[in-house]
Nucleic acid binder design. Structure first.
Length: 262
DNA sequence: ATGGTGGTTCAACCA
């Protein structure tokens, strides 16, 4: 089973690009972030035509997440528990049922958190605590699951071309990195880093200042696997070439192959 | 230190 995550930065602006990528890459399950539309505005039929089932958790104008799956989608939950006041559409969870195996998939768009020191940074850290709580709950079930999405965290200096440029950014704060490390220390595997220990693996290049042309990237989109899923990890990678297409998202897809039938 | 780009919605917000 090929899993993927992609911050699409607007599904309406990116539809043709997304369809081209899906035809090329052929993932079985995709988590999308920043669809930037309400559920009714999501182009479900265009994805259905490529064989995908669709579940969305949308919002007007901002945020919004979705799951596409060639396998049936079951038991969808929308929103991350732990804050009844939180109305931002950043989390969707579902079970994708394959032949002889099921995988719980959580698609997430973690808050950016800038500027540091304000409400937005506090919201980011609180959100990460809520995510840790949910991860602990999922781990207790001892079943295969994956957390995929735009984590808006640069885990280590090696995950940025110029780490010094991010020292005052919420994505690279010690608190953000520590909360990310807490997730991996629970026993979740960072699939992309596990398969690619080398430097220079990035998933985001800013639209500004020629970041792509200079390869001034950061790695902030991640796939975290539970032990039961990590045991079945084959390969992982990025579809970096998509960043060079016409009208690209500022993020590129990240994928991982998991052999659930082994 | 500032401005550089892009999406959504409609002057401003978010990233």
């Amino acid at each position: 089973m090929k899993l993927a995550t992609w911050n699409i930065n607007g599904v309406k602006a990116r539809l043709e690009t997304a369809l081209s990528w899906l035809k090329d890459s052929g993932p079985d399950v995709v988590c999308l972030q920043e669809i930037k539309t309400v559920d009714e505005g999501f182009p479900t039929e265009a994805f259905a035509d490529l064989g995908y089932n669709v579940a969305t958790h949308g919002q007007k104008g901002f945020n919004g997440v979705a799951i596409l799956s060639k396998l049936p989608i079951e038991d969808v939950t929308r929103g991350l528990a732990g804050d009844g006041e939180d109305t931002q559409a950043r989390y969707i969870e579902a079970t994708v049922a394959g032949k002889g195996a099921a995988l719980r998939v959580a698609g997430l768009y973690l808050p950016n958190g800038n500027p540091i020191g304000g409400d937005k940074f506090a919201y980011k850290l609180a959100w990460m605590q809520r995510l840790e709580h949910r991860a602990r709950g999922l781990l207790a079930e001892e079943t295969p699951f994956a957390l995929l999405g735009d984590f808006n965290v640069i885990p280590e200096p090696v995950d940025a071309k110029r780490p010094e440029a991010w020292v005052h950014d919420a994505l690279f704060q010690p608190e953000s990195r520590s909360a990310y490390r807490t997730l991996t220390h629970l026993g979740l595997m960072d699939a992309l880093r596990a398969c690619h220990p080398e430097p220079g693996v990035y998933t985001f290049w800013d639209y500004q200042a020629g970041s792509w042309q200079k390869n001034d990237g950061i790695r902030i989109d991640h796939i975290l696997l539970s032990p039961q899923a990590a045991d079945r990890l084959g390969s992982a990678g990025t579809d970096q070439h998509v960043r060079g297409w016409e009208k690209p998202s500022d993020h590129v897809p990240v994928w991982a192959e998991i052999d659930l039938e082994r």
